[in-house]
Amino acid sequence: MPKPLFVIEDLHVSVEGKEILKGVNLTVERGEVHALMGPNGSGKSTLAHTLMGHPRFQITQGRVLLKGKDVLSLPPDERARQGMFLAFQYPVEIPGVKVRHFLRMALKASKGEEPSVTEFRKQLFEKMALLEMNRSFSERYVNEGFSGGEKKRNEILQLAMLEPEMAVLDEADSGLDIDALRSVANGINKLAGPHMGMLLITHYQRILNYVDPHFVHVLFDGRIVRSGGMELAQELEAKGYEWIAGEAVA
């Protein structure tokens, strides 16, 4: 039997001695889109950062397997090279570094070889066209002076260029107006496919009006307390997180 693409197994994570994740279990296969929903403070961002290897989070228990291999001891760049990707909720600015230059370096790092200049340009402009982005965007410095929507689209552009096997999108919809939200969601739909597993982390249900996940999970107080399909998201939308909170206490 082939190994599953991505498995989170009994993951416990602490920040400065306080336990945030208290045993998370989740499996994502190729071609699947999973939505992970949860209220503020449930541990969503902790999970996203931990999966990518942010040094601030201490793993006290559990495993994260990518293609059967535990990645928890790997630094973030090694995880990226193994096929993981994180779209950040708050992408940082890298002053003086052009998007184009940065993408080329990232491609070289993750694929091991540098694409030729013409090939790279062709690929870049294709993806930008796919995401309906203006070409001049690639001449700007990474995230510097970007609007909220531009930052999120820049994350999606990187997702498109780097073609990871497992993508985690942390609050890809936060802070966007309706047009920007639609454009980001379109990008996600175009990029999702049989070769990739996707974990969409979100507070609100609204992005799910545009992206159809195969599975919906609810994270509450550091654990996944409910799993289901789209109907779960709709129920959440109707009843709010208090409904889950009530159940979790009971």
Partner: peptide, 27 residues
């Protein structure tokens, strides 16, 4: 935070640092 962001895209720590310094001077 900049190092982590760049490393999450596959750059080694050294390359990430180089890129940040280059960017510091580039303009």
């Amino acid at each position: 935070a900049q190092l982590f962001y760049l490393m999450s895209r596959g750059l080694s720590r050294r390359d990430a640092q180089k890129l940040i310094v280059d960017g510091f001077f580039e303009p």
